[in-house]
Design a protein around this nucleic acid. Structure first.
Lengths: 233, 233
DNA sequence: AATGCTATTATGTCTAGACAAAATAAGTCA
DNA sequence: TGACTTATTTTGTCTAGACATAATAGCATT
């Protein structure tokens, strides 16, 4: 507890975490009800409720009506990764951001891409390829398709100064997204652009977005193997 | 809104998301204050507050005292990846789970590993290596170090039947964790075990855990390049 | 033994009011 | 002009009480 004044939900959270860490409350065990804890901490039940809900959201506790609250048997079921703009990601590392447009042309998506996006019929799309640099070194190769039916304004943008990443973020809202992380072997062009040997390992992040079930954009972001996606909890 | 009865914080959340998606409230724009929204929705300020806080936590809104609440300019949306037990992950795919212990011996960590874990002085650790199989095919190579000062009971476990992954989850609580995803080139032993060519691309997930600033375990999980980490939001 | 109803209980959520804390804006003084 | 102080606004959080809802356990019935 933070000493003075009223009890905060943070105080309760951290005290509960402490009890779990010190094995006073074992994994799988039932912990006291909200009323009991409120009495113990000398605060209202609402405050205890907020603390417990926070911990449950982060996976440390599991709660069920009537059954009560118990310490998760396998804690941390989920990790959260923030997905920033490439430029911010690079600048946060203290490096100078660079951008190079490689190509930008209207296309009709092939069968595979349509299946991936859940398209019924073919549609007009914009294919944009570009390179993001950190202190002059290749950082990310971005290979992107934009659905012009969902974002018609994109047809009039040149993307020579502002990257599609950045433009879309403030111009194409979405309601659903899917992320995929994986390792892959660098193809010929990718390899050359990223400065890795052909067939060498690269880190690939893919993102698909929809606005109300209409595909918005699909992007393949390819990084050299030095790239790391880090998260803490 | 869900029609009948009282207004719920979910109703408010989804209405706000709708307004943002439909560009009634543009990215970067200031939205009405809690009091105004409470009046509009006919509910108490606390309910509006909860809805707005939820949306702020998920990155859709940004809030600052006195300055008010605005639609995030760059939705630094967070992706949540569920990190299940390997066995559950494999069984969820409908494959049969297999496990093979490759080695288990006490060691003193080298300089690099100690720096990584934030060790002051050398410590006794247990080095466990094993392979997880899906339908007989290599799925994940697990290379793990366990700090015997933090988890002394681990010294008496053979890990021949139950994997360290599974044992630790219910026996070694932690208060902080760090995840890293990246691509790498398969080393000699790894390559042979996973059935990929030496130097071929592999997907690596690393996890470090601490209990109250004391390192608990470090694990390197190596997957063949067919592996995908997927998430939706 | 299996099924279905009912009371009970713990969490989920809302209200109305209050005060705290942070951050901006405005005003004051050198 | 520039630095400092004060007022004001908006979100952050707590309280006490109430009702809602889900899930269990026990009882009664078939």
């Amino acid at each position: 507890m933070s000493g003075l004044g009223r009890i905060s939900h943070r105080d309760i959270s951290s005290e509960i975490v402490r009890r779990i860490a010190e094995r006073l409350w074992e994994p799988g065990a039932l912990i006291p009800g909200e009323q009991a804890l409120a009495a113990e901490f000398g605060c209202s039940r609402a405050t205890v409720n907020r603390a417990l809900q926070d911990l449950a959201r982060s996976g440390i506790l599991e709660r069920r009506r009537k059954a009560g609250t118990r310490v998760s048997l396998n804690p941390v079921r989920e990790a959260r990764f923030v997905i920033p703009l490439v430029r911010q990601e690079i600048e946060a590392k203290g490096a100078a951001y660079g951008y190079r447009l490689l190509g930008c042309e209207p296309v009709t998506p092939d069968e595979e891409l349509r299946a991936r996006l859940g398209f019924g019929k073919p549609a007009r799309m914009l294919h944009v390829r570009c390179l993001h640099l950190a202190d002059g070194a290749p950082y990310q190769y971005e290979d992107r398709w934009i659905n012009l039916d969902a974002v018609p304004e994109a047809g009039g943008v040149s993307f020579s100064a502002v990257s599609p990443n950045e433009w879309l973020v403030t111009n194409a809202p979405f309601s659903r997204a899917e992320f995929i992380f994986r390792a892959a072997h660098a193809g010929g062009e990718e390899a050359a652009l990223l400065g890795v040997p052909e067939g060498g390992a690269v880190f690939v992040a893919e993102r698909l977005t929809w606005l109300a079930d209409k595909p918005v954009t699909f992007v393949r972001m390819v990084h050299p193997p030095s790239h790391r996606v880090v998260t803490e909890l």
